[in-house]
Simulated assay, not measured.
Amino acid sequence: MCKEFDVINQNPKRSDEPIWWGLFGAGGTWFAMITPVTILVLGILAPLGVIDAESLSYERVSEFATSFIGALFVIGTLALPMWHAMHRLHHGMHDLKLHVGVAGKVACYFFAGLISALAIIFVFMI
């Protein structure tokens, strides 16, 4: 047998990192592409009067937020950037030599999961 193949681990340990990296990537993408548009529409165009105030009335916004697409939008806006931020915080602490181990990982991802759960509860309570 060739020596090259002796270093290949035949029984690699399964990692949970692909799950966290997937949520990190989704949150980063959402934050980079959707959040600026949301800020533009709600924070700049609406106050300047470019968008009619009636189109952002409570009734219309409530109707949108309770629709399937609106609920996904609200949950995505609250949850996905939080997963991104907590993953970045977890790895940032490691980069700063603050090795908090499994407890830090659990704390970061628990907090992101809590915010996600609260976002889902919030949408269903509207």
Results as ranks from 00 to 15, higher is better:
85 A>P: 02
54 E>P: 05
69 I>Y: 10
59 E>P: 00
54 E>L: 13
46 A>P: 02
98 L>R: 13
65 A>C: 08
47 P>S: 13
108 C>K: 02
121 I>L: 09
58 Y>I: 13
70 G>F: 10
71 A>K: 13
20 W>Q: 05
31 F>M: 12
81 P>W: 06
124 F>R: 12
85 A>V: 05
117 A>D: 03
32 A>Y: 05
58 Y>H: 14
125 M>N: 06
114 L>D: 01
26 A>W: 08
98 L>S: 07
46 A>D: 06
2 C>P: 05
36 P>K: 09
120 I>W: 02
73 F>I: 03
5 F>Q: 10
70 G>P: 08
45 L>S: 12
43 G>L: 09
49 G>A: 10
56 L>W: 04
12 P>G: 03
118 L>W: 06
114 L>K: 01
81 P>Y: 07
123 V>D: 07
80 L>K: 07
71 A>T: 12
108 C>E: 04
94 H>S: 09
115 I>Y: 07
103 A>W: 04
41 V>S: 05
36 P>G: 05
7 V>I: 12
4 E>I: 00
102 V>P: 00
112 A>G: 01
97 K>H: 14
40 L>T: 02
9 N>K: 08
87 H>W: 04
7 V>P: 01
102 V>G: 00
41 V>T: 08
79 A>H: 12
65 A>R: 12
25 G>C: 15
46 A>N: 09
33 M>T: 13
105 K>M: 10
107 A>Q: 00
32 A>I: 07
5 F>L: 13
126 I>R: 15
100 V>I: 08
61 V>F: 14
92 G>Q: 11
100 V>S: 06
42 L>W: 11
23 L>D: 02
119 A>Y: 01
105 K>S: 10
64 F>D: 08
30 W>P: 02
92 G>H: 09
102 V>N: 03
80 L>T: 05
125 M>T: 07
79 A>K: 11
118 L>P: 02
23 L>Y: 05
41 V>G: 02
119 A>I: 01
98 L>I: 15
33 M>N: 03
41 V>W: 03
4 E>K: 00
91 H>F: 07
20 W>A: 08
122 F>R: 06
106 V>K: 05
4 E>Q: 01
120 I>V: 14
2 C>N: 10
69 I>W: 12
12 P>S: 05
53 A>K: 13
22 G>W: 06
93 M>R: 09
57 S>C: 11
99 H>W: 08
76 G>M: 15
116 S>V: 01
9 N>D: 14
35 T>E: 09
96 L>I: 09
6 D>H: 03
76 G>D: 15
48 L>F: 01
49 G>Y: 08
45 L>E: 15
101 G>L: 06
98 L>W: 13
113 G>R: 01
